[in-house]
Design a protein around this nucleic acid. Structure first.
Lengths: 346, 346
DNA sequence: AGTATTTGATTAAACGTTTTACAAATAGCA
DNA sequence: TGCTATTTGTAAAACGTTTAATCAAATACT
């Protein structure tokens, strides 16, 4: 007794050739209704499932998509942000009921190494998150000519497939909200604005909102800090120096959490002494004290869209638009207070 | 010009047979120093990398390990707990510098379906998270005879490979800490204690600690709730009913966060009115207000250990112990206050 | 009736490895 | 010098699919 029935066993039992069985499995070629049902019955009966390694070998593709996420610099771990788990969740969900599976691999953004597995395993496509124009990884990826979808990676080339947020809209909406609540001295805290297009876009929206009210963007109110809780915590000190600030727009919730903690430790009351708005709407955001008002995005959806887009690309289906821009949403909670001055205007 | 050089191309160029090239690649004996270095040079020169699909087909193994994580019941997403991301990080790290890669798949714990890919793709082994004795998944896994390591799944069979925390020690340590701080009316909040061995173990430790002080465990002080923030939030109401409680031991940080929020909304001050201790030590835990005292575990390490254990099992290396129990650690922060009564005793 | 077309199924050659069995060359030893 | 043992290398057969090329039978068209 063999371990696992293969296509030959099925063919023998059904009294047909292996080619016919293959055609039934793949719903290809010409095969009569009668034999289709016969073969299908036998397949069911014997519990046959195809050996995908064999298929991969023949077809030079694997029904595998790779998820490339950046390392932490210091220890060998992946970047410690729950955001990624939501993303994975969406990507995995996007493959369900499809034949694809997800293989996950961390890469050191600086080195861009270890993408060998893509060729070795005949990976069909890649979802790449958080890289930037001209990064070592981008170079490696480009030269190996594999279908790709980039998430949250601002890349200028117009023929790359991308899924990202409408960051400018987000920056605008958040700032507008603060302005409507009467705040005019608004600090922003986020990462570098250079290659990192995420920050750049949000900053741009922020500026536009200010200018729509006749205010001018002041670079001194911009605090640059790593996108971690530690980064936010450290930013609190900077905020204190800017004594006239009444509200802070954090470009990520994680940073906002750190900042809230930092301000708390400096004896600020939120939102009475200072208002805070975040960006991301993490699972935790409605559970911090006070619940964080934030720009909300559906991270899981982002992953799902990316997967769908990638699969379309792999299967050479027609794609109307290579760039998918997801909408943002203001989630109003309790970390922003309305300034009295505006209350009178209403 | 071919797309990608294969073993034949290398053999031709080196003037040897493909068998020899194969032997060089796999460092199997029977080939002289001279030819080894010659072949290696050619491989380097041509940029040859083996086609793993072909290897898989021949060897009936894939160098792929599957990570099985449970679904959320309602939507199709994976369980929304950052814990899993840390785990993935550790598992991924455990495969680095090994030939293995991780393929991730969500399964609905209740249905236990869709494990077909394990056979179809010749998956070498599985890391399974959070299942329980007799679950549908367990049944399916058992019948397909694939190497497995179970994380946080209390399973009685002694010959199963497992990685888990010393939950009993954790329950003991947390409770002991509260007792030392003078608390005697301690509520515990966690999941079901039936099949879920995690809760069971922690509860057992809790009881032992109490009894070591001549106290008896009282079932009325135990609150059963889902292991989510919502669950914790809801538990606050229950705590209020137990009016004489001075401290709460939450069996996960996520639940503790929800509870803190819930108690806050009921106008409790933490830790002044009630002390709280958690379990897990998430990234967030030191950033909530007040910073959460908690039983700490190294989740990433857990993933790494599981991977190592799995690989050993796959490669049939000798394993001294099939069960790895990881230590816990008390992380003392600010959510627990010392009761005056004990202060006098010191 | 004779020929062209369609339909349904088959044969055999790939895909790129690993591996078994065997041959050739070299070394060891009397 | 012969005989055996060891080392180094090879040929060929797998592994389980897909697919291009054929083919026979059945149907359709003059």
């Amino acid at each position: 007794m063999k371990q696992r029935p293969n296509i030959h066993d099925v063919a023998d039992r059904a009294g047909v050739s292996i080619a016919t069985v293959s055609n039934v499995i793949n719903e290809k070629g010409r095969v009569s209704e009668k034999t289709v049902s016969k073969v299908k019955m036998i397949i069911e009966e014997m519990g046959f499932t195809p050996n995908l390694s064999a298929r991969s070998l023949k077809q030079m593709k694997s029904s595998l998509i790779g998820l490339i996420v950046p390392f932490q610099q210091d220890d060998g771990n992946l970047q410690d942000n729950p955001f990624y788990w939501n993303l994975v969740s969406g990507i995995e969900a996007g493959t369900r009921d499809q034949k694809f599976h997800v293989i996950i691999s961390g890469v050191n953004e600086n080195k861009g190494e270890v993408l060998d597995f893509v060729k070795e395993r005949n990976i069909d496509g890649l979802v790449v998150v958080g890289t930037y124009q001209g990064s070592p990884i981008m170079e490696r990826i480009k030269e190996m000519q594999v279908p790709c979808v980039f998430i949250d990676s601002y890349l200028m080339e117009p023929d790359l497939y991308q899924v990202y947020l409408d960051d400018e809209q987000g920056g605008y909406t958040g700032t507008k909200y603060l302005l409507d609540k009467g705040h005019t001295k608004i600090a922003v805290v986020g990462g570098e604005a250079k290659e990192d297009g995420v920050t750049k876009g949000r900053l741009q929206g922020h500026r536009i909102a200010l200018e729509s009210r006749g205010l001018t963007y002041d670079e001194r109110y911009r605090i640059e800090t790593p996108g971690s809780m530690e980064g936010g915590y450290l930013a609190a000190e900077e905020i204190r120096k800017l004594s006239d600030v009444t509200a802070v727009f954090c470009f990520s919730d994680v940073v906002a959490f750190g900042l809230m903690k930092g301000l708390h430790d400096l004896d600020y009351k939120i939102p009475e002494d200072i208002s805070i708005i975040g960006f991301d709407d993490l699972y935790f955001s409605k559970y911090v004290s006070p619940p964080l008002t934030t720009i909300s995005q559906d991270v899981s959806m982002k992953g799902r869209m990316a997967t769908q887009l990638l699969i379309k690309q792999i299967e050479k289906m027609e794609v109307v638009n290579k760039k998918i821009v997801l909408p943002i949403d203001l989630r109003e909670r309790e970390s922003v207070i309305e300034l009295p001055s505006v209350k009178l205007n209403n």
